[in-house]
Design a protein around this nucleic acid. Sequence first.
RNA 1: GCGGGCGUGGCGGAAUUGGCAGACGCGCUAGACUUAGGAUCUAGUGUCAUUGACGUGGGGGUUCAAGUCCCUUCGCCCGCACCA
Length: 804
Amino acid sequence: MSVPEYNYSEIEKKWQKIWADEKAFCASDSFDKPKYYCLIEFPYPSGAGLHVGHPRSNTALDIISRKRRMERYNVLYPIGWDAFGLPTENYAIDNNIHPSIVTEKNINHFREQLQRIGFSFDYSREVNTTDPKYYKWTQWIFLKLFENGLAYKDKININYCPSCKVGLANEEVVDGECERCHNKVVRRTKEQWMLKITDYAQKLLDGLDDIDFIERVKIQQRNWIGRSEGAEVDFAIANKDYKLRVFTTRPDTLFGATYMVISPEHPILDEFSSDIKNIDEVIKYREITALKSDMERTELNKDKSGVELKGIKAINPVNDHEIPIFVSDYVLMSYGTGAIMAVPGHDTRDYEFAKKFNLPIIEVVSGGNIEEEAYTDSENGVLINSGLLNGLKVPDAKKKIIQFLTDKNAGEKTINYKLRDWVFSRQRYWGEPIPLVKCDTCGWVPLPYNQLPLTLPEVDEFKPGEGGESPLANVTDWVNTTCPKCGKPATRETDTMPQWAGSSWYFLRYIDPHNDDELAAKENLNYWLPVDWYNGGMEHTTLHLLYSRFWHKFLYDIGVVTSPEPYQKRTSHGMILGENGEKMSKSRGNVVNPDDMVDEYGADAFRMYEMFMGAFDQPIPWSTHGVKGCKRFLDRVWRLQESIEGEEIRPDMESLTHKMIKKVSQDYEAMKYNTAIATMMSYVNDVYAKETISKREYLTLITLLNPVAPHITEEIYHNLGGEGLLSLSEWPKWDESKCEDAVKEIAVQVNGKLRGTIVIPADADEKAIEGLALDQENVKNYIEGKTIVKIIVIKGRIVNIVVK
RNA sequence: GCGGGCGUGGCGGAAUUGGCAGACGCGCUAGACUUAGGAUCUAGUGUCAUUGACGUGGGGGUUCAAGUCCCUUCGCCCGCACCA
């Protein structure tokens, strides 16, 4: 039979249209089948368009989604747009064009690019975080958080980006720089809306035990939450009625505390400003500190700096010694209580500080050599010079001192978390308005739910207001309103929400995207949740992934959702690098555009290479040559149409075919796409060697290949006279008994070195195998004149003859 | 410093978890077909050596057997960090 040339662009367009027309990949809400919910992180539709990194995650879960459909699941594989954010706003400012226009244009471009690659997304469920019908529910969730006391406004030191003129969440600061613009972040005091994610620290930690996240992600989240057990201890200020409270993980070393250190932002400085003789010096130090980011302040090899507070002293509660108080930038107001007791003998940082400032170093835990360095072992050390604690091991000393402090009302056991509350305000235009009204009599008043969504007002200027205020502050008509509670004149909050808001719950909206009465209908949520498999980048582990788990747990607590965790399984893909092995970026000039690949090699070859290029979870450089190789393979698969002979699987292909079904099926599940594809390549090589292929063998091959290369396989299926769509046909099953070979070739070693191979029946016993091995010509040469010490036979694997 | 990971041909990577190292692909070499080849097909391709030896960053160890386990060392990547 002769077939036309493989015209990929025609074939791909044709099937993409058919799939769309027949709504082949739309999820059904009939609830009559087992469901499977696959999720990829919805893209931020940037002006630069899609890059070859996006399709890696998309294709991986497209394969899973397509396989699940063929396994007869009701599959939800949605797509949407995380469209609020700074780049769009900055573009809008630079070009004086409304961000919504830019957003729409970018979304259309992204959608076209994605559609050309043939992902089986349910486009009927698209969501867009900037759509008022969507952010109505983002605002609704915020109001619920507010109602439940999880949103509060606080005057705090925040990370401030002088370039973007916005406050940033701690989690958004990367290496002391603004994550978006890479400019240095400074500290600045500002009233901000905060979300109490810290209230959920323990739940977020505990929840990790019950879900199937790759270990790297769990570890990273645990570290970020940073639970530590310790104690808070009160140090009195001499001659004052004031207690300076510290947090310590080593209360056992209390007798070794020879000074204290407080953060430059600590309120005690204002409290005792008239008592501190060198207050001018202290204030100057505070001003210098304010310019630094936490990262700079806490850098390990940094020279210790600080100023002693002259005129006030603290009293160690266990021995009543008066000790000096220092202010130093290495103590952060945002962790613990903003003050520490310094134990230079047993803490490395305190040791360095004490050396620099010539402070006494007392050994209170024996076992190390504090002449040389701090002894920080918290397991084996034994307490000395510590009164009631002498002779105790560290863990016992901790218990005893905590009891002692509790009895004396001078402290207590506490658990501290590294995690900080989420700074939720942005002084930007392109975000969800915060639906609150400030009334002089009633305070902060939530907008009634029936007034949602509170939409963004049209403005001409998107530039931030003076002093970093939101552009919304300039829209007087919009800002001035009446109090929903008392009806008196009041003003709206002008800050907007961060980009993380819309992305914290988008997977819920996919479940019921057009519902105007609820975030999503309860029965739909019950059916679809949790997300069965969520794949995304490692860079979102501590930001998006943690935030959305927090929101979900809150929604669970107030009865909106019925699953305690949003995502049952989380995997992560490695980054795709440029051909030169460096990170792909415009400035490096090594960006590869997927459109070019689709044009030149077709979507199927492109998808296939994305999966074939290497281990899915590892970073990998792009190679356009590699795409070519995949295209060649698809050409070979296509040409098999000329070599069809016979209907059913031929005996000599049976084991190979069943082994392929097994290997490909299992490898897809384990995200070992590269070896799954290699298996199919080998199979095709074998078929070429045999020159013909039966129809059943061919159908099996294209069915297994379909999730990776859906267009070409759909076309071949159609040419073979297949009914309906291959994409909705049944996944092949393998017969375990047919995966075994009747005969096997195994290696024969002498003293661990390969000396020959033998072919044995699968059921051969050890004696027979030994005999065959010893009979090998080459083996004989190596055992001649030597004594056989023993013969090791590993069934189906290897024979090793040990001689002397 | 702590936590996680990586190191295998010219390149991307395989290796049933202790059992024939280098599957599969790229690239390269030779040949066939062709007016032509950046198409296709066939054969070859770890290194050195004409029987064999050596080979998974280096060194040591356990074992009949090590890319895989243990010790040690070097290099690289990622995350977190004066976190008290």
